[in-house]
C-alpha cells in the first residue's frame, strides 16, 4: 500500500467501486443509450456506472484523507480452501458423480479449519455424503448421477 494512503479499507473499497464501474461501462459501450424519453438498454446501467464511479472516487479520497486502522488477519487459508473445492465440485460433478465430487470437495473444505484432523474430517465427510445422498437424491430425487462416467458410471 503506498504511503499516502491513510485508510486502506476505504481506499481499496473506493478503488474497487471505480474499477467495477469502469468494467460495466466497458461492457455496455456498444449498446444504444437512447434519450431520457425513450431509454435504450444502456441508459439506466450507464447512469448507475457514472454514479458508482463518482461514489467510489469520493470513498478513495476519504481513504487518503482520514486515518484509520489497517486490514487485519485476512483469511487466505480459509478463502482458498473454501472456494477451490466449490469450483472443483462444479467442474467434476457431471464427470465423477455425486459421491466423489461432493466427498472430495467436502474433505477439501475441511482443511480450511485450523482444527483439521484427518480422521474426524474423513468421518465427517462420509457422514455428509451419506446424508446428502439420502436427502437430495433418494429423498428429493434430484437428477444427479451417484457415480459419473469417469469412474465407470453411465
Amino acid at each position: 500500500m503506498p504511503s499516502f494512503v491513510k485508510n486502506p479499507k476505504d481506499f481499496l473499497a473506493g478503488l474497487l467501486f471505480v474499477v467495477v464501474a469502469g468494467l460495466f461501462a466497458f461492457g455496455i459501450a456498444d449498446l444504444p443509450i437512447g434519450t431520457a424519453f425513450r431509454m435504450g438498454p444502456g441508459y439506466f446501467p450507464m447512469l448507475l456506472c457514472i454514479l458508482l464511479a463518482a461514489l467510489g472516487a469520493v470513498i478513495m479520497l476519504n481513504g487518503i484523507a482520514v486515518e484509520a486502522e489497517p486490514i487485519k488477519n485476512f483469511a487466505w487459508r480459509g478463502l482458498l480452501n473454501i472456494v477451490l473445492p466449490i469450483v472443483f465440485f462444479g467442474a467434476t460433478l457431471r464427470g465423477l458423480g455425486f459421491v466423489l465430487a461432493l466427498g472430495i470437495a467436502v474433505f477439501g473444505v475441511s482443511i480450511a479449519s485450523t482444527h483439521f484432523r484427518t480422521r474426524t474430517a474423513l468421518l465427517n465427510t462420509a457422514l455428509l455424503v451419506f446424508f446428502g445422498w439420502l436427502i437430495f437424491i433418494w429423498g428429493l430425487g434430484l437428477p444427479i448421477q451417484v457415480w459419473g462416467p469417469w469412474v465407470g458410471g453411465y
Binding site: 473454501i82 472456494v83 473445492p85 466449490i86 469450483v87 465440485f89 462444479g90 467442474a91 460433478l93 457431471r94 461432493l102 470437495a105 467436502v106 474433505f107 473444505v109 475441511s110 480450511a112 479449519s113 485450523t114 482444527h115 483439521f116 474426524t120 474430517a121 465427517n124 465427510t125 455428509l128 455424503v129 446428502g132 437430495f136 434430484l142 437428477p143 444427479i144
Partner: peptide
C-alpha cells in the same frame, strides 16, 4: 464449528447446482 461448516458448504453446493442443473451457478456462488 469445524465439523459444521463443511456441511453448510455441501448443502450450498448441491442446492445451487439443483436450481437449473448448471455448474455455472456453482462458480457464480464461489
Amino acid at each position: 464449528y469445524h465439523l459444521l461448516f463443511p456441511g453448510i458448504v455441501a448443502v450450498c453446493c448441491i442446492g445451487v447446482y439443483s436450481v437449473s442443473n448448471n455448474a455455472f451457478d456453482v462458480y457464480t456462488m464461489a
